[in-house]
Design a protein around this nucleic acid. Structure first.
Length: 550
RNA sequence: GCGCCAAUAGCUCAGCAGGAUAGAGCAACGGAUUUCUAAUCCGUAGGUCAGGGGUUCGAAUCCCUUUUGGCGUGCCA
């Protein structure tokens, strides 16, 4: 709001001076507070165009801007920056605007209702969700919340790989545990089978339901029963874990369903129609080299079964058919080779490749006793999402995962995360919220309520810290847009921490409630209630609770 | 070999499409409380932004290159 006003003031002034300029100049809040409230590099970027020195151009511009009423001062600094200081009244008005829109502060129409599909986690339904899924969950869900808040029509989707090899192995693993319950012994449990304890639990429960009657049906039917039972139960388990982590999905897409509905054949036939498939060595190939892949890929194996590429192409076909403008896949870093094949297929099908955007979340190392823990899903040695939520709590876990950018590797030190929760920065942020609630409560007891507050008194907010806090809050809307645009929710984590810090310092330095100065107290209460609101909105966008008391 | 990702304080990480003196947290050291909640605040110390080159008025940020680490490069998913 304020920024765009400054933009237009600068443009007006340039026009008045008949100076040429490119609109890509910046108006930003300088790191160093002594450089003013805002600064612009417009003269640095455009001096050449006007055959002037940057400082000369800046001086001419400053002269015009100084005549405008909104500016306390306009100075030239360094190589030709223009530093602007605004009148306090501008900030007071902005503060009132924040209070006015309440919970909607920071929301916008930036996304223009574009339809966005966010696919994330999409773990195999063969066991409990692990820490990798936890990171993906925290990331995907928060990005969803932010994108929705800034005006995108966003949807979350979980793709269930409930068909293919892995699932067959799952059924066989369950079969083995089931047979153990009926007296059989396996000296060497097959290494490729799933070893987790949950398989034993599943066998126990299945045995309670079906008893020994599964021995009286054909092996094929028995394995089918095993598969269906395991898939259903593990899905329930995963949904329960996600619920505890506050992650929901608008849609669950099942690979089996895609297969049953003939989408795989549909995708294959489109590829054939586009002349992108051929037969060789008893297999069907996709000529992906035509689309920049390094070699052609097999679609249908010699044994007649499709490779994993086919259902994935079919799945993405549905994403396009459903009319999304932006298709975001959140994947592990080991998928990038796969994605190049997928991109080739999408081009072959004639769809706009630019709509598909892949975000790679880098690996997580679990550190235990200073050593990296190797995880293996099949061997049952994993740190689960439930473990993390139980041990460090949902709020801390989500903050922890969101505090780093997606492209960065992440070391998760279990001992440290478990040790003392107060060491976690999330409490610093939440405490700011709780503290404000506590002050507001106290104010109420002292009969100070904002109902009979006259905004004219906002001029009493004249301390540097108070203006600084308002400035900080004014950054919030554009910060959210940046988070959405760059798909980087971690910036929000940093922002809340900053805002909380600004508040804590203010709190330590100034008394908010002072019954002998009623107007000043009310003004300050007004200010901190705005902080409270922004902190709450931001925490909520990260899926973290904003406690009233700690 | 080729491809993708990374390298910033002792540790874990930020650094907002190039801006002015590179910032937090933790760890270390020294202080602040008869409080509006100390889960807080103030201070000290800590850096060749992996090395080198280029573009620019200006580079941690963009380009090239070298080094180091992770991952990938299946008729597994």
């Amino acid at each position: 709001m304020i920024k765009s006003k400054i933009f237009s003031d600068i443009k007006d002034s340039l026009d008045k001076l008949n100076l040429k300029f490119n609109e890509n100049f910046a108006v930003e809040v300088p790191h160093n507070i002594e450089h003013g409230d805002f600064s612009t590099n417009v003269a640095l970027l455009n001096a050449k165009k006007n055959k002037m020195k940057p400082r000369n151009m800046a001086e001419k511009l400053a002269e015009i801007l100084n005549k405008k009423r909104n500016y306390k001062s306009v100075n030239i600094a360094g190589p030709g920056f223009i530093n602007l200081r605004l009148a306090n009244s501008i900030y007071h008005k902005a503060l009132a605007d924040i209070i006015k829109v309440k919970k909607k502060y920071g929301s916008s129409k930036y996304g223009k209702k574009k339809k966005v599909l966010l696919e994330f986690i999409s773990a195999n339904p063969t066991g409990p969700l692990n820490i990798v899924s936890a990171r993906a969950g925290a990331y995907g869900d928060s990005l969803y919340r932010i994108m929705k808040f800034v005006g995108y029509k966003a949807f979350r989707e979980f793709y269930i790989n409930d068909a293919g090899n892995q699932v067959d192995i799952l059924a066989e693993s369950l079969e083995l545990r089931y047979r153990e319950l009926h007296g059989e012994r396996f000296e060497d449990f097959p290494p490729e089978a799933y070893h987790g304890e949950y398989i034993k639990d599943l066998a126990n429960n299945l045995n309670i339901i079906d008893g020994s009657k599964l021995f009286h049906i054909s092996e094929k039917d028995r394995l089918e029963r095993m598969k269906n039972y395991a898939l259903e139960e593990i899905h329930k388990m995963q949904v329960a874990s996600l619920k505890k982590f506050d992650v929901n999905f608008e849609n669950w897409m099942s690979e089996r369903k895609l297969r049953q509905e003939g989408i795989l054949e549909e995708a294959l036939s489109y590829l054939a129609e586009a002349n992108c498939t051929y037969e060789k060595d008893d297999a069907i190939w996709f000529s992906s080299t035509d689309f920049g892949d390094e070699k052609d890929r097999v679609l249908i194996k010699t044994d007649g079964n499709p490779t994993y590429l086919v259902p994935d192409i079919a799945y993405h076909l549905t994403k396009y058919q459903r009319g999304f403008d932006i298709i975001l896949d959140v994947l592990g870093p080991d998928h990038h080779a796969h994605v190049s094949k997928l991109r080739a297929a999408i081009q072959a099908l004639g769809y706009d490749i630019k709509k598909l955007e892949v975000i790679y979340l880098q690996h997580i190392n679990i550190i235990k006793h200073g050593k990296i823990v190797k995880m293996s899903k099949r061997a049952g040695k994993i740190v689960t999402m439930d473990n993390i939520v139980q041990e460090v709590g949902k709020d801390a876990a989500r903050y922890f995962f969101l505090n780093r950018k997606p492209s960065a590797h992440l070391d998760f030190d279990l001992e440290l995360a478990k040790k003392k929760s107060s060491e976690n920065p999330v409490y610093y942020c939440q405490y700011a919220h709780a503290r404000i609630c506590s002050v507001l409560k106290k104010a109420k007891k002292a009969k100070l309520t904002l109902k009979d507050f006259d905004k004219k008194n906002l001029k009493k907010l004249n301390k540097d810290e108070e203006i600084f806090i308002i400035k900080k809050m004014l950054e919030f809307p554009s910060l959210l847009i940046a988070c959405a645009e760059h798909r980087e929710p971690h910036r929000l984590a940093g922002y809340i921490h900053d805002l909380a810090g600004v508040f804590h310092r203010y709190y330590a330095k100034y008394k908010i409630i002072d019954v002998t100065h009623k107007e000043l107290s009310l003004s300050r209460l007004y200010l901190i209630s705005a902080i409270k609101s922004v902190v709450a909105i931001a925490l909520n966008l990260m899926g973290i609770s904003a406690p009233e008391k700690m």
